[in-house]
Design a binder for these strands. Structure first.
Lengths: 345, 345
DNA sequence: CTGAAAGCGCTTACAG
DNA sequence: CTGAAAGCGCTTACAG
């Protein structure tokens, strides 16, 4: 039965090395290396002796040491906002799958939306010499990554563009998606529509607001100042914002939610009201179809964001000469009921 | 402006090393090491010269090389079922936070419920010489980890016990939770209750079934063979199982769902029926309270599973002499409506 | 206070 | 077909 190690065992110094295997098998170090790596040029008899020594000693190649000589670590770093956020789950998995297809492992961590923590984490990954870095930015100044990129760390930003440096970015078409969602409400007869979104320093928040304004302008509809609220997406703040938009002489008949957290809070708020209010949210979420009414959303493909970004990363790692690109993925309006509620007037 | 690297740049061989910094500053290698690691015994003047050289060359210590000498990699490996599964998000984040508090990074990956892939991934992590390993088992034979554990890899299993080896495990009280959930239905007047769960080779599935049988037995209620269905949790299979349990002379008036996937499918199935059927599910899920009726669940604390497991891992890494333990965390019944629907008869 | 030498566990480049 | 030497970029152990 295995046992958990005593402190004195805690270095891998007591693990057998290729040198030990070589001594045990009575061959040279390089011969062991050849067998372990499946290189040609070893007689079957020698190979068998080495294999037996490997079994007997329980040898496993130390890939950390290997990496030091090879130059590549076969590791990709992923910095995202929060590993616990369901939105990033499919993205995380997609990055993993592409990395896996290239034989690479994934180190990831959460920035917790803190620019300092993002920086600390990204640089720690660079110190580990990840081959590539995928970053969902929390901060808006990424000049700290310049030396790393210059030194060879392939870097792709996802979901939000890099700040103050030139780098690949893969994101959803926030502007177009929001414009489509708001146009959908307008097509349903709404003329007074509220917009509740994230902090204005977040790129997607302002892009979606821009889409909202574009749709309203396209329809020749005015936008009252009280209909737009950017800021914290904490439930209390969103509830308060909704309450004020839904009352008074300029009360809105429909709401557009800037992201999934806002949408979920608004669903709760609207469930408590007697008067039906139309709702379209940016970002899809699980079970949106099971609610009554089902929640109409502008869906982005989180898995595709991760896949496209990681594909690009490995293209660069493969030596492709690509210009810095901004890749925008389309969104999809999914009508489920909440966005099709007519205005009451 | 930074640029993505040309192929010839792709080794970190062209990065400055401590040797380069030493030459630039006109000092010895060890002095650079002292400055970089904040060790005492360097005159302010020397330190300044070294710092200037570091800035000038854009030096960043190679932690991969450092690790080779140090023995510890300050890295924890996490093997889970699916990075995209929302159930594992909070667990993943909790592991990250504890690791971070100990200065360690997290390498993680999905087994996709494939025992071979679990093994391949876990051993790849061992080859990278992670200090510790947290495994949510897909397979039921983990003897392949024996040599690794003996060589010093601290290992803790989560959510399901290890197979055929002795090792720490942290899990939720599936038996007790299911028993409580079913007892809740019985207390509400139900006498015919169906159980739909995962494959019988999955430990949590059989434990929950055992809890179901215990609650029925405690209440002196018989269990018809047609009321229990274990197997694939694919929606079609779950729907079919529910349909057959809900019809015929022995039709059940309530269902207990063995996990969140089953619960969600059952919510869909029951939404299409006119006759109300009570439902309690194992595992909480987002928005369960927003559905009508709200879904009553037996909730486990996924973040606590991750936290407790990682705490234990670092206790072992810190040299604590702990016996192998099985740590069970309690569950919590959350009544929201679906589990309080009375039987119709 | 400072640094030259040896070594962590591998691979590379080369010689036999 | 096989292996001794050098080196990847650091830290350790030691000497001055």
């Amino acid at each position: 039965m295995p046992h958990n190690p005593r402190p004195s065992d805690l270095r891998y110094g007591n693990r057998p090395t290729m040198k030990d295997v070589a001594a045990h098998a009575g061959v040279g170090l390089k011969t062991v290396s050849r067998v372990v790596n499946g290189e040609a040029g070893v007689t079957p008899d020698t190979e068998r002796r080495v294999q037996e020594a490997i079994e007997a000693l329980g040898f496993r190649r130390n890939d950390s040491a290997r990496v030091l000589r090879k130059g590549r670590t076969a590791t990709v770093g992923l910095v995202l906002e929060d590993l616990a956020d369901p939105f990033y789950g499919p993205l995380n998995r997609a990055v993993e799958e592409v990395a896996r297809a290239h034989g690479a492992l994934l180190i990831n961590g959460s920035s917790a939306e803190d620019p300092d923590r993002e920086r600390e984490l990204a640089l720690a990954l660079c110190a580990r010499r990840v081959d590539g870095l995928i970053v969902i930015p929390a901060g808006d100044d990424h000049r700290y990554l310049e030396p790393e990129m210059r030194a060879g760390v392939a870097t792709v930003f996802v979901d939000r563009p890099a700040g103050r440096i030139e780098a690949d970015v893969v994101l959803s078409d926030s502007f177009g998606g929001a414009r489509d969602g708001v146009a959908h409400l307008i097509a349903g007869g709404h003329r007074r529509i509220g917009f509740i979104g994230d902090h204005p320093h977040i790129h997607t928040a302002t892009e979606r607001l821009r889409g909202y304004r574009a749709a309203m302008a396209d329809a020749g509809l005015p936008v009252a100042g009280s209909w737009v609220r950017l800021g914290s997406t904490a439930p209390e703040r969103v509830s308060a914002a909704a309450a004020s938009m839904l009352s008074g002489p300029e009360a809105v008949s429909a709401l557009f939610a800037g992201n999934n957290r806002v949408t979920v809070t608004l669903v709760r708020v609207l469930a408590d009201r007697d008067r039906p209010v139309a709702l379209v949210g940016f970002d899809d979420f699980e079970l949106a179809d099971l609610l009554r009414p089902g929640v109409t959303v502008v869906a982005q493909d989180a898995a595709a964001l991760g896949r496209v970004a990681t594909d690009r990363l490995f293209q660069r790692l493969g030596g492709a000469h690509l210009p810095t690109a901004r890749i925008e993925l389309g969104t999809r309006l999914i009508a489920r009921g909440s966005g099709e509620l007519p205005p009451l007037d």
